[in-house]
Structures are given as C-alpha cells and as structure tokens.
Amino acid sequence: MDKSLRVWVESEAGRCVYCGFCEPVCPTLYPGGHRGYGPRGRVNIALNLVEGGKPTEEVLKSIYSCLLCGACNLVCPAKIDIVSVIRVFRALMWRTKTY
C-alpha cells in the first residue's frame, strides 16, 4: 500500500515542469513567506522527500498549511493532481512517522 502510494506520488509529482503557473492562484503563498507555501514548492517537497528522510519544521509547515482548495489543480499545464499529491504525502508521512 505504502509502496504504491509512494510510486504514485513520485510519478504524479515527477511530471512537474517547474513553470510556477500554479503559484499566483495559491492563497497561502504570500502569507507563508516563501516558495514552500505554494503548490510548486509542495509538489517538489513531496517529490524530494517521498523516499523518506526526516522532514524539517519548514517542510511540515509547508505540507500542513495547504488548504486543499484545488485552485492550483485547475491551472497546472501538466495536469498534476496537486491536491492529492499533498494529501497523500501527509498520509505517508504520518504512517511512516519519519519525523
């Protein structure tokens, strides 16, 4: 189960071309204060950490401050299901208690 979720996150997030089109629609980006609080950041944090590794405090804040509002999903040219990547990544982190 975990393995298939990991593989899914990797392939979904792995399609990110880093264009940043998702950032201007994200409500948490500006109040957050850095790129980790936007969808491009979250997707790539998930991608970079999905294989494990202890998430830092900033990583946790980034992943848990997402509203799951779906604004980013609508504008992503690679059609990544960003909301699900973030939610599933939360589930994986919690389950494996890597923190």
Binding site: V25, P27, T28, P31, G32, K61, Y64, S65, C66, L67, L68, C69, A71, L74
Partner: peptide, 16 residues
C-alpha cells in the same frame, strides 16, 4: 476560479 476563505487551516495556522 473562486478564492479560498482560508478556513481549512484555521486550526493549524490561525494567523495565515
């Protein structure tokens, strides 16, 4: 194209 009210994170990041 609506804009979220911020509510879903009120318990985690009230200020944001």
């Amino acid at each position: 194209m609506t804009y979220c009210c911020g509510g879903p994170i009120e318990g985690l990041a009230p200020k944001m």
